[in-house]
Simulated assay, not measured.
Amino acid sequence: MTDDTSLQARAEAAPWLRWGARVGIVAEGAIYVLIGGLALAGAFDPSQRPKGSAGAMSQLAHMPMGRVLLGLLALGLCAYVFWQLVLAVIDPECREHRWEWKRIALRFHHLWSAALHCVLVGMAAWQILEAGRAQDDGHTQRQLAATALRLPGGRWLLAGIGVGIVGFALAQWVAACRPQQQTRMELAHTPLRRPILTLLALGYFARGALFGLIGAFLLHAAWQHDPSEVTGISGALQSLRRQPYGPWLLGIVAIGLIGFGLAEMARARYRDMRVGEKGDD
């Protein structure tokens, strides 16, 4: 088809949206590379504790030019939040069928992603302003869990969240088996197609392992009615290191997280930014 409707359906997104999306995706990838890099260092050096998002940002802030790099990262994360909000509210990539339940669920996913990355922006801003020592990455989670357990039915609420996180982890493992279907990257004409998809599959596997552990700890906390069992990314990675062959397990997950971050950076280059089409992501 060559009519105006077909051309419009394949039109590129506005430049401001394309650049905002690409900058934001790079920033998100950088977070995974940073967390994975610190975890890989911890696999080789027992004195190095794996870090979550807050700890990784604190580590970055204390490096030479760290505040500048953290400021750039925060700006990139702001761009990612803005892009996710555009996808959630306007849904420019799907002009038809945007009120189907799958599209509505996907738009809620983008809204949730925007909220989570707003938290990361706040963490980065706090480190830039204070550059103080970050709290343990599971501290906030344990406080929230303790508050939830004091509520009527709080144990079931905590268990429900744990089930949801485990379900997300399982979805990551499913995605690892078919990474091409989980992204809108145009890779048909690039020789990097196989390496990018391999990194993406490793990344999904690592994220599945990481969030599976976090969800399992949350379920155990609900079962024991003990908020001290709740942990974040840092605690989950640390628990891997305590297992038999722990440094190897931690190293594999760390490499997967780095791979996911690099694949995200590649996605910033190759993602299909056309509007008016029905897409999955």
Rank of each mutant, 00 (worst) to 15 (best):
V166K: 07
W173I: 01
F82E: 09
A115T: 15
A221C: 14
A30F: 00
L249R: 04
D272V: 11
I214L: 05
V23N: 06
S234D: 15
G138V: 03
P152L: 00
L85C: 15
A124I: 08
A43P: 13
G251L: 09
V121E: 02
A263M: 04
I196H: 05
V174W: 09
P195M: 08
T190I: 05
L202N: 10
L170Y: 01
L158I: 07
K51C: 08
D280Y: 14
L157Y: 09
R133W: 00
R98G: 09
A43F: 10
L87I: 03
W16Y: 13
V68Q: 01
V174L: 05
D4Q: 15
A171L: 12
D4S: 15
L213P: 01
G122C: 06
H110M: 13
W16F: 11
I25V: 14
G55T: 12
D3E: 12
R274D: 14
G29D: 00
P64Y: 02
L144G: 10
G167Y: 13
S53E: 13
I161S: 10
E28M: 05
P15M: 09
A27P: 03
T198L: 09
L60G: 02
W156H: 09
Q59I: 14
G20C: 09
A105S: 12
F168A: 10
V275L: 07
G138T: 01
L77K: 04
W126Y: 06
F211H: 10
L199C: 07
L60P: 06
Q8K: 07
Y270P: 14
G20I: 11
L257Q: 02
A74G: 12
A148H: 00
L157W: 12
F44E: 01
G138R: 02
S234E: 15
T183S: 05
H220K: 12
A11Q: 00
F211M: 12
R150G: 06
P46H: 05
A125I: 01
A13R: 11
L199I: 03
G71L: 02
I258S: 08
E96A: 13
K51A: 10
L17E: 12
R267F: 04
G246E: 11
I90Q: 08
F205E: 09
I255C: 14
L7G: 11
A131W: 06
E93H: 13
P92I: 07
K51Y: 12
Q135F: 06
R98E: 00
L170H: 04
A105I: 11
A14V: 08
R241S: 11
G215T: 12
D226L: 00
C78Q: 01
I35R: 05
H109G: 08
V89S: 03
L158S: 04
A188V: 14
R95W: 14
I258D: 08
I161R: 11
L250Y: 04
L120C: 02
R267W: 06
L129R: 07
Y32S: 00
A79T: 04
A115M: 15
F211T: 13
F44S: 07
L158V: 12
A125E: 00
A159Q: 14
V230T: 01
C78P: 03
L70I: 00
A54F: 03
G153V: 13
L75E: 03
C177K: 14
R184A: 05
